[in-house]
Computed example of a mutant assay.
Amino acid sequence: MQVFVIFLVVLPISGVVSINITEPEFFEINIDRDHPEKLYKAFEDFKKKYNRKYKDESENQQRFNNFVKSYNNVDKLNAKSKAAGYDTQFGINKFSDLSTAEFHGRLSNVVPSNNTGLPMLNFDKKKPDFRAADMNKTRHKRRSTRYPDYFDLRNEKINGRYIVGPIKDQGQCACCWGFAVTALVETVYAAHSGKFKSLSDQEVCDCGTEGTPGCKGGSLTLGVQYVKKYGLSGDEDYPYDQNRANQGRRCRLRETDRIVPARAFNFAVINPRRAEEQIIQVLTEWKVPVAVYFKVGDQFKEYKEGVIIEDDCRRATQWHAGAIVGYDTVEDSRGRSHDYWIIKNSWGGDWAESGYVRVVRGRDWCSIEDQPMTGDIKDHKDNYYY
């Protein structure tokens, strides 16, 4: 196969997304000289599948440039995964015509804060005393074997209704942190009340910051603290609008009814030294998820299916959030076992594994086990430090 290289410059454009590109991107495009029509057909298929309509031929060309960059990156990532014997697969998805800057606009720029002083889970003491969360000790592997080898909250029901809600879509707003908090609280509420209710991501996004626009990013800590103090309304009463939280101070909590009452929700930080064990214990014993915040590297944008094993986030500055809802183990083509988390994402059900992603567990992949959070409404206060 003959391959040639073209150097292209991506200029500021508009159309399918609203984020403006302020800096050009330079990248290599490798095209099979014998069969270039495959690439053009792939782009046409992409536009049809995701109903892309660009304003003019100039934008079409720039979107094609972005698409080819993704196309090449998918090939490289799949080749690397196959050579390593992993089951991870990458593919074209709804982000494939976005520039790096546009994709990063869907991620959070907020660096996690130090959780010292927040309530921390402790399963070892019957009567807790106050202790500030210590984040600087050596991490421990899971020691207990009393938990099942596999668990998935998506299979759990209360009164015939699943306690993990449908996948939602944050759109172009970087409110992943709010969706992760809401995913946690929805299941906590279902486990407590016996009924599932879709709760308002928009309220957390509007109100759960310190006055900054929620669409610019946010904090799991501020999100759970907000729900603890003010409670949370339902989606029907406070619906999601991906453009609303691009401005700060849009909170309208006093205009809505509380589904989760104020002061009813409790939260705690998972001990990072025992993250794997405690996350598994929360999932299997409490039947609630764990909200997590993690860095995003190149693999995550192109992810299609399988378990992400490699950590490519050491230099990453963008963050994302989701909710761990289960765990399991997979064996790769070389017979090696890889433990993994099942994460509920907020990019719609047409992304990856029906809106979910699986990543390796117990290795602090992309800092995912540094500051997990969970919560409850029932009588588990003895498991917290206050």
Score class of each variant (00 low, 15 high):
residue 324 I to T: 03
residue 325 V to A: 07
residue 325 V to Y: 11
residue 325 V to K: 11
residue 325 V to R: 06
residue 326 G to Y: 05
residue 326 G to T: 03
residue 327 Y to M: 01
residue 327 Y to K: 00
residue 327 Y to T: 00
residue 328 D to A: 00
residue 328 D to W: 03
residue 328 D to H: 00
residue 329 T to W: 02
residue 330 V to N: 03
residue 330 V to Q: 05
residue 330 V to R: 04
residue 331 E to V: 13
residue 331 E to H: 03
residue 331 E to R: 05
residue 332 D to K: 04
residue 333 S to P: 01
residue 333 S to I: 06
residue 333 S to G: 07
residue 334 R to A: 15
residue 334 R to P: 09
residue 335 G to F: 11
residue 335 G to T: 08
residue 336 R to E: 13
residue 336 R to Q: 14
residue 337 S to V: 11
residue 337 S to R: 13
residue 338 H to E: 13
residue 338 H to Y: 11
residue 338 H to S: 07
residue 339 D to F: 10
residue 340 Y to C: 09
residue 340 Y to H: 08
residue 341 W to Y: 13
residue 341 W to L: 13
residue 342 I to C: 06
residue 342 I to L: 07
residue 342 I to Q: 11
residue 342 I to E: 10
residue 343 I to K: 04
residue 344 K to E: 12
residue 345 N to H: 06
residue 345 N to P: 01
residue 345 N to V: 12
residue 346 S to F: 15
residue 347 W to S: 02
residue 347 W to T: 02
residue 347 W to Y: 14
residue 347 W to R: 05
residue 348 G to N: 09
residue 349 G to H: 14
residue 349 G to S: 14
residue 349 G to I: 15
residue 350 D to W: 09
residue 350 D to M: 06
residue 352 A to C: 08
residue 353 E to Y: 00
residue 353 E to I: 02
residue 353 E to Q: 04
residue 354 S to A: 14
residue 354 S to M: 13
residue 355 G to Y: 13
